[in-house]
């Protein structure tokens, strides 16, 4: 389970160019392992979605990737940098290796085309040799995979409920048997019951089909339940990374701690919700030093002056954990 699937190295993403540009993602290193569910959490504006869209160059203008690499490790063959692909190569890479389930369940489907058209056009683009009948059969299969009756192929998006639409999107994401599925707040627009149904189904599908998931949400309690490892983002940087269980048991960064206590856990003992005082930083004028220090209850002298580096904390024997906080300086 520890083979590497995707490696993000020193990724920097800006919005805009020149003096007015805003640094939305700063020097992010992140590794996705084969078959795992990696959760990425943070408040809105933390850069988590920017990171996800930046990976495959899908950020809308004025987004610009200002540095870093996204190394993809295919099962066979040499690893390569996704950001260095030509347009043509990138088109072939997209969806075949990394597919995305988008935030808005409502707007991800083209309102003027039938579900069948939207499921088959991706097959046609990537497998030009396939027959129409084969593509339709595959589309039926995909709907069955997410538990939607095949007669819905002829429906238009507006004829489906929000939950069904998001299921269609998940089915679509699996159309080319990708290695990585990126989920950007896939269930936020849905009610809690449907949300859990869909995520449960997804975990089941992952076990059957063996893809890895980058799961982005602001709801840390969902991640604790559904992911293997969790990375927390704040102000465009990753501030803590740990196994889901480890983070839930013992979060080191005060921000992770705050985030964990702002959502009610569905299971386990009742806890008092504390939330985090203050509001996310303005990306235009970031605080000096650790971006979290103005809101941090434990902030002390070095926090204001220097940015803490992400690293394994001192005196923690457990593997697989890193944090960027002056309370837990790197060893």
């Amino acid at each position: 389970m520890s083979e590497i699937e995707l490696e993000i190295k020193g990724l920097n993403v800006d919005y805009g160019l020149g003096e007015q540009s805003v640094h939305a993602v700063r020097d992010v290193d992140l590794t996705l392992r084969r078959g795992e569910v990696l959760g990425l959490a943070g408040e809105s504006g933390s850069g988590k979605s920017t990171l996800a869209y930046g990976l495959t160059r899908l950020l809308p203008p004025p987004g610009v990737i200002r540095g870093g690499q996204v190394i993809y490790h295919p099962e066979q063959g040499e690893p390569f940098d996704v950001l260095g692909l030509s347009d043509r190569q990138l088109r072939a890479f997209r969806w075949a290796q990394t597919s995305i389930v988008f935030q808005g369940a409502m707007n991800s489907l083209n309102p003027v085309h039938k579900i069948s058209t939207q499921l088959t056009d991706v097959l046609r683009a990537h497998e030009p040799g396939s027959t129409r009948a084969a593509r339709l059969a595959r589309a039926r299969e995909l709907l069955a995979l997410v538990g939607i009756p095949a007669d819905r192929l002829d429906s238009y998006p507006h004829q489906l409920s929000g939950g069904m639409r998001q299921r269609v999107m998940i089915g679509m994401a699996l159309a080319l048997r990708p290695k990585i599925v990126i989920m950007d707040e896939p269930t936020t627009a849905l009610d809690v019951v449907v949300q859990r149904q869909i995520l449960g189904q997804l975990v089941g599908l992952r076990e059957r089909l063996g893809f890895s998931v980058l799961f982005i949400t602001h709801d840390l309690s969902l991640l604790v339940e559904f992911s293997d490892r969790i990375a927390i983002m704040y102000g465009g940087r990753i501030v803590e990374q740990a196994s889901a269980a480890g983070l839930h048991k013992d979060s080191l960064h005060p921000y992770s701690h705050g985030l964990l206590h702002s959502f009610p856990a569905l299971r386990g003992p009742r806890e008092e919700l504390s939330g985090i005082p203050g509001s996310p930083p303005d990306l235009r004028s970031m605080p000096t030093g650790c971006a979290f220090h103005p809101r941090c209850p434990h902030s002390f002298d070095p926090c204001v002056r220097r940015v803490p580096e992400l690293g394994a904390p001192q005196g923690r024997p457990e593997q697989d954990r890193s944090v960027a906080c002056w309370l837990h300086p790197a060893s």
Partner: peptide, 23 residues
């Protein structure tokens, strides 16, 4: 957008402008 004179912003293909000058 400001500064589009040199870089054309394309929907669907975010420009990659590495400062270090990599590939």
């Amino acid at each position: 957008c400001a500064g589009t004179a040199k870089v054309r912003m394309r929907v669907g293909f975010t420009p990659v402008l590495r400062r270090e000058g990599g590939p």
